[in-house]
Amino acid sequence: MNDKTKVIRVLLAKVGLDGHDRGVKVVARSLRDAGMDVVYTGLHRTPAEVVQAAIQEDVDILGVSLLSGAHMGIIPVILKLLKEAGAEDIAVVVGGVMPDEDAVELKKLGVAEILFQDTPPEKIVSTLRQIAASRGAG
C-alpha cells in the first residue's frame, strides 16, 4: 500500500438483465492488482441500487458493464440519478459492447469514457487512473 496517494475506489456494476459477468470480473481483478479498491455489486442490479451504492461507497469511478444492448436505456438513467443526488462528480465509465454512434451519444450525455470489449487490462487501468486524477483522486 502506498500511503502517499489516496487509494482509488471503483464500483463495478452489472445492471439489468445481463448475466455476462466474466468481463467485469477480469476488470475487477485487474484493478485490484493495480492497487485499487473495487466494490463489486453482482448481477442484475437496478440503476437506483447502483447509484446509491456508489454514493455510500464514495467511489471515484462508477464502472458499468453492459453486454445486453440496453446501454441507451440504462446509462442515461444512472447519469440522471447521480445528478439528482448531487453526485455528478462520480465519473461514469461504461464497458462492454455497443455501436460506435451510441458511444458518441453517451459521451455527450456525460459518460467519462467508454471501454470496448477489446480494451487491454493495462489500458483500462491507465484510463481509470487518469480519470481519477483529473477528479482529484489517485
Binding site: M1, N2, V7, A28, R29, L31, R32, D33, A34, G35, M36, D37, V38, V39, Y40, T41, G42, R45, A48, E49, Q52, A53, Q56, E57
Partner: peptide, 27 residues
C-alpha cells in the same frame, strides 16, 4: 498490490433504496 475486491454488497443489494440502512465496504 494493496488493492482489494470488496464483494460483500453482492449479498446485500435488496437493502438499497432505504435511508435507514447505510452500507460501506472497506479494505
Amino acid at each position: 498490490s494493496g488493492g482489494a475486491i470488496l464483494g460483500d454488497r453482492i449479498r446485500m443489494t435488496d437493502l438499497t433504496g432505504d435511508d435507514g440502512v447505510f452500507i460501506r465496504s472497506m479494505a
